[in-house]
Amino acid sequence: MTVVRSLVLFVVAALAEIGGAWLIWQGVREHRGAWWIGAGIVALGLYGFVATLQPDAGFGRILAAYGGVFVAGSLAWGMVADGFRPDRWDLAGAAICLIGVAVIMYAPRG
């Protein structure tokens, strides 16, 4: 159950961080205004909180692994929110990152 909890937290963190950055992007670059920027700031703060709920105690390990989740999640967000179509190299890179997440977070340790 710990691995499932960890994976759910990674997904929630990705939604908060990527969503927050996207909201700020929309507020500034697409001129949608201060409410979008403010919502993005709140979402980014939520990301910082969600990361602390990971079962592993190692800050560096969690943030390093989350980097891989961020890469894959960003491509997925771009596909859903902006119509981005990744090429095979984008997909290969995301897969490599997710393999790295699995090794960093879930490899057996003695």
Rank of each mutant, 00 (worst) to 15 (best):
A14F: 06
V50F: 07
F84T: 04
A14I: 04
I18K: 06
W22A: 03
W25G: 00
G19I: 02
A16R: 08
L91K: 07
I24K: 03
G100K: 02
G83A: 05
A39F: 12
I41H: 03
W22G: 00
Q54P: 06
M1W: 12
G58R: 14
H31W: 06
A72C: 11
Q54V: 05
G40D: 05
G33Y: 03
I41F: 15
P86W: 09
Y106W: 15
V28I: 15
L7R: 14
M79S: 08
G40P: 12
R88F: 15
W36H: 11
V103G: 08
A34H: 12
V103E: 11
V69M: 11
F49A: 12
F10T: 01
T2E: 11
V42L: 13
F49T: 10
A81L: 13
P86Y: 08
Q54S: 06
E30L: 14
Q54Y: 10
G27Y: 09
I62A: 06
S74R: 13
L15D: 01
I24Q: 01
A95Y: 12
L91I: 14
I96A: 14
A57L: 12
C97H: 03
F10Y: 13
Y66N: 13
A14V: 09
M1D: 04
V69C: 08
S74M: 13
D82Q: 15
V3D: 10
Q54C: 04
V50P: 07
G38R: 00
I18Y: 01
V8G: 08
G20C: 04
G83S: 06
G20N: 05
V28F: 11
A64H: 06
A13Y: 02
L15W: 01
G110H: 12
G60E: 05
G67D: 08
